[in-house]
Structures are given as C-alpha cells and as structure tokens.
Design a protein around this nucleic acid. Structure first.
Lengths: 126, 126
DNA sequence: CAGAATCCGTTAGGATACTG
DNA sequence: CAGTATCCTAACGGATTCTG
C-alpha cells in the first residue's frame, strides 16, 4: 500500500465507489428516511412527523427512489379501512447499518469537537 | 435496545448526528476531495485533474469549507518560485477513513448488485 | 390517511473567461 | 500554477391546495 501505483488504483476505486454510493444515498433526505424506517417508522405521515422539515412532496419522491433501489418496499394492507400503507425496510436495508453507525458516530464527535460540549451518546449495538 | 423508548432515543440521536455529519461532508464533492487529498494529491490543479468533472470555482469553494472544518490545511511554500500551494490533510482528516471505507465498500457492492458484474475490489488495509 | 398537483424560490454547481 | 469573476440553469426542495 506504500507503492504509489496501488495507491492510485485505490484512490480511483474509492472515488468511483463513493460516487456510486452517493448516487443512491446522497442528498439531504435519503439516509434520514432510511434511519426512520429502520427504526420502526413505517407510515407516511409518521415518517413526515419524525423527519424534521421534510415535505410530503419530497418524502413521496424520495420513498419512490428508495423503493427503486431496493431499500424499502411499499406494502398496502387492503384488508383494512381506511387502507393502510406501510414502507418497510427490505433485507438489503440492513446493509446500511454500518454506514449510518459510522456517519452518526462521526457527526456526534464532530459536533462535540465544534461545540465543546457533548450530547448523550447512544452506543452502537452491533 | 428492544425497548421502544430507547429505540426512539437512538433514532433521534442518529437523525441528528447524521444531519451534523452531512452538513460538513455532504454535497457532491467534499468527500471526493478528501479522498484525493488523503491519497496524496495536494496541489490545486492536480486535484482538479484527479476529481472528474469538478470546476475550479467549485474546487476552490469546497476547499475553503473543508479548511474551515479542520480537514485540510492550506500550506504556501513561499520559498519557491513560482509559489507552491499545497492542501494537506490534517490529523483530523484521518477520522474520515472509516467513513470513506464503509461508503466505498457499500458503493462497490451496490454496483455489483445492480450490474451483476463486479469491479476489481481494492481491499481495505486498516 | 396517503399522497398528487401546482407553483415558485433558492442554490448548488457547470461553463467560460480572466488574472497575478 | 492557483485561483477569481461572471453568468447561467437545472435541480432541489418549500408552501399550499386538492383528492380518493
């Protein structure tokens, strides 16, 4: 890894791979929606209430994008009235756990670094 | 962690922490610039060549933002002519390693999942 | 409740040209 | 080489209204 060539290869690979990841997860909302969904919020209005500042329009389009990428499924329970729609995390969504954990850790450390004071930390359980 | 209250606390904490992280690292370019910088590309035009599609204007403003957040330092070697400017990763920048690694792994797996065919994988060395 | 439709403002960021 | 200065537009996303 000290060899400059393999380092260049790694740099190129990382640039491309991170670009791919951000194509799916980038933007202001997608990760936040996934956090809420994975943590048990499945209904549309519940998600909108839980995710601070998101509008119905944006939530709707983001959910469609996440569904296209296989991270959530839209489940309609037609046997109820009124009809209940649920956005459920797929198995694939579990692969986001590490990303969320790492980003979340970094974010709270960074905030502590900036503000001096820390928040209550929530331990990772994996 | 099965208790719904602590799960809610965790959800709130993650939402807020990820938001903090994305405030610093979000957008199309910041992480990509950091990848290039950490991998040994320190000069302005070198970075612009290395990072596909970035304009000088955007690179300039993004570097300033990263400098403000303590992730790079702008070092001017005045004893040379023409003057050499280098953007060097700070020690703090090392804390991004895990983020980049995790995102990069996910991105390349996801691409394999989508396209069916995989790229040459570059192993993580930490 | 679960959205779609419409309208509209902001802005990230692209293109190009120019400078010390 | 290392940027800055303009200009410009596509996309993001906020607000509001409407609907089955």
């Amino acid at each position: 890894m000290e060899n400059p060539d393999s380092r260049e290869v790694k740099c190129t690979a990382q640039l491309s791979a991170v670009e791919d990841a951000m194509y799916v997860l980038g933007g202001k909302w997608k990760l936040r929606i996934m956090i809420a969904v994975v943590n048990g919020h499945h209904r549309f209005n519940e998600l909108q209430r839980r995710i601070n500042g998101i509008s119905a329009r944006v939530l709707s389009t983001e959910l469609k994008s996440l569904e296209l990428n296989g991270l959530v499924t839209r489940a309609v329970k037609a046997d109820q009235t009124p009809v209940v729609v649920e956005y459920l995390p797929t198995e694939y969504a579990a692969t986001l756990k590490e990303i969320v954990a790492v980003l979340s850790d970094w974010g709270s450390s960074h905030k502590r670094r900036i503000t001096g004071k820390g928040e209550a930390l929530v331990a990772r359980e994996d």
